[in-house]
């Protein structure tokens, strides 16, 4: 390809953006429900990546099962972490700082655990979805099409759960007024536990989709998590729609931005804009103002 094909850049942006959105929606879900920020979100992403790798390479299972295993493994780990660590902190009167510290500690622990256990090397994976399609000069590898489809299905699922199920009502009620939700007989510790599990499973889903494109290593979750932070700040913490819009916006801006700024300086600009956005609109660009 010569020069920049704007259609190609847009498509690439949507692909990247849908993964940012998946990461960000998990962070937003935890924030909205439990009012805490999960600094270890990227490490759950990593767990998803490693599980996929071992399921595909060691167990040699079908890719769909491997992805399922990645989600399941991460979900269980998330539930355990919530039950064993977060629970104690979230029940305190002052929980914001302690949960930040605990998840940061967890993040460093998990990263270095992976480093010791699996080593520092990059583990490569074959594309789960083969094939490359060409439409009007735009190159579309099957894997990337699958990424977008999976993201759409995941968002539809999360949205439907929140909107239509009993558990969704419990999540929304807990996030809007926890103390009153208790009066309805809603068992908010259970809501917290499952929400945490679902949220980190969304990160694992992103990882299982992206691992074949990038690679699996102990730090693989760092970048996506920082990107997701940018997205949730743009979209407003706690807003699922904001996470999706913000994710897409960041993906497209980054992709198209390569034409203007080299990629190693893009993150610098993105983080600077993040700080600027927080400065001007602490509730996010799309977020509603919390009084």
């Amino acid at each position: 390809m010569h020069g920049f094909n704007i259609a190609q850049l847009l498509v690439d942006g949507v692909v990247a953006g849908s993964m940012y959105a998946l990461m960000a929606s998990g962070i937003s879900l935890i924030w909205g429900t439990m009012r805490m920020l999960n600094f270890a979100h990227g490490e759950f992403y990593m767990i998803g990546g490693y599980t996929l790798f071992f399921a595909l390479v060691a167990l040699k299972v079908h890719p769909v099962i491997a992805v399922g295993l990645g989600l399941l493994m991460t979900f269980i780990l998330g539930v355990v972490v919530e039950r064993l660590i977060m629970r104690w902190l979230l029940l305190r009167a002052e929980w914001e700082m302690p949960t930040l510290v605990a998840t940061l500690g967890l993040s460093v622990f998990m990263q270095n655990f992976a480093l010791r256990t699996f080593g520092a090397g990059d583990l490569g994976l074959p594309y789960v979805v083969p094939g490359v399609f060409r439409v009007a000069g735009v190159v579309l590898p099957g894997q990337r099409i699958a990424i977008v489809l999976v993201a759409i299905v995941a968002f539809a699922a999360v949205w439907s759960i929140l909107r239509y199920t009993k558990f969704g009502i419990a999540i929304r009620a807990t996030s809007q007024d926890r103390d009153t939700a208790v009066l309805m007989g809603i068992d908010f510790p259970k809501v917290y536990m499952l929400t945490f599990g679902i949220s980190v499973a969304l990160a694992a889903l992103a990882a299982t989709m992206l691992a074949p494109i990038y690679s699996v290593n102990p730090w693989m979750g760092q970048r996506p998590m920082l990107k997701a932070f940018i997205v949730v700040v743009f979209g407003g913490l706690g807003s699922l729609e904001g996470a999706v819009l913000g994710g897409m916006a960041l993906g497209i801006i980054e992709s198209v931005g390569v034409a203007v700024v080299s990629s190693e300086w893009q993150d610098v600009i993105a983080f600077a804009i993040l700080i600027l956005v927080l400065w001007i609109r602490p509730q996010g660009l799309f977020g509603a103002k919390e009084s």
Binding site: L37, M97, L226, V233, L278, W279
Partner: peptide, 24 residues
């Protein structure tokens, strides 16, 4: 910017982003 932020998570994100800029 940090002074304008209320709420530990926002301050955490802003300062972490700043450190990330310096590192990058």
């Amino acid at each position: 910017p940090v002074l304008r932020l209320r709420g530990a998570p926002y301050i955490a994100i802003a300062t972490l982003a700043f450190a990330e800029i310096v590192k990058l």
